[in-house]
Simulated scan of single mutants.
Amino acid sequence: MATINITDKFSKDKPSIQIGEKKYPVNNSVEAVMKFEEMAGDGSIKALLSSIEEILGKEAFAEIGVMKLPVSDVKVLMLGVMAAMQDLPYEEAAARFQQ
């Protein structure tokens, strides 16, 4: 029986979002994305904020000052996070979200 080595096929890069000069890593593990979808799917702003915090981490969430952002900027942040998780350009994620 043949052995197929896929070691080099796995991604070693972690996605990130950039705000100003600072880059914030985005947790794109299957577990994190499933939890993100579950929490964000609730539709409430509280669930949306919790899902962003889950993906970015508490430290990045606080550093960005998400709780003080206008709702319109939280939407931009959310789209950026979704784009990073799915390895899509921001514009494509925004177009998909509008559908």
Rank of each mutant, 00 (worst) to 15 (best):
S51C: 13
K46P: 02
E38R: 08
V71A: 05
E63M: 05
K68R: 13
I55C: 12
M67R: 14
K68L: 11
E37D: 11
E53Q: 15
V66M: 04
P15T: 09
I55T: 15
F10L: 12
F36M: 03
E21S: 14
D13V: 11
V26I: 14
D13H: 06
V74Y: 05
I19C: 06
L48E: 06
E59N: 08
E37M: 12
K58H: 12
D42L: 00
V81M: 01
E59H: 01
A84P: 01
S72T: 14
L49C: 11
K58F: 09
G65T: 06
Q86M: 12
M39A: 08
M82W: 00
N28P: 03
L48N: 06
F36K: 02
G80A: 01
V30A: 10
D73W: 03
I52S: 08
M82N: 02
A83G: 00
E38Y: 08
V30K: 04
E38Q: 08
S50E: 15
D73E: 15
K58T: 14
V66T: 09
K35P: 02
E59G: 05
Y24G: 09
I17P: 06
A40D: 03
K68Y: 11
K35R: 12
A47D: 02
S29T: 14
D87I: 02
N28L: 06
L48K: 13
D87R: 07
P15M: 07
A60W: 04
K14S: 12
A83H: 00
S50F: 06
D87F: 07
K68G: 13
D42V: 00
P70H: 08
V26C: 05
E31N: 08
I64W: 02
Y24D: 05
F61I: 06
I52T: 10
K58M: 07
L79V: 04
F61G: 06
S50A: 15
V66N: 04
A32R: 00
A60M: 02
I45E: 07
V33P: 00
S16D: 09
L69R: 03
L56V: 09
V71P: 00
L77I: 02
K14V: 10
Q86T: 11
K46M: 12
L56N: 05
G41T: 02
G20T: 11
S44G: 04
D42N: 06
S16P: 02
E31G: 04
K23S: 15
K75R: 13
E37C: 10
V76D: 10
V76I: 15
I55N: 13
L56D: 09
P15H: 07
S50K: 15
S51Y: 10
K75L: 15
I45M: 14
V66A: 12
G41A: 04
F36H: 05
A84N: 08
A60G: 01
G20E: 11
S29P: 00
D13A: 13
A84Y: 07
E31T: 14
Q86D: 14
P70L: 04
K75I: 15
V26W: 02
F10A: 11
M78F: 13
K35W: 05
A60F: 03
E38W: 04
S50D: 15
V26R: 01
L88D: 08
S29F: 06
V33F: 09
A32K: 01
G41L: 01
I55D: 13
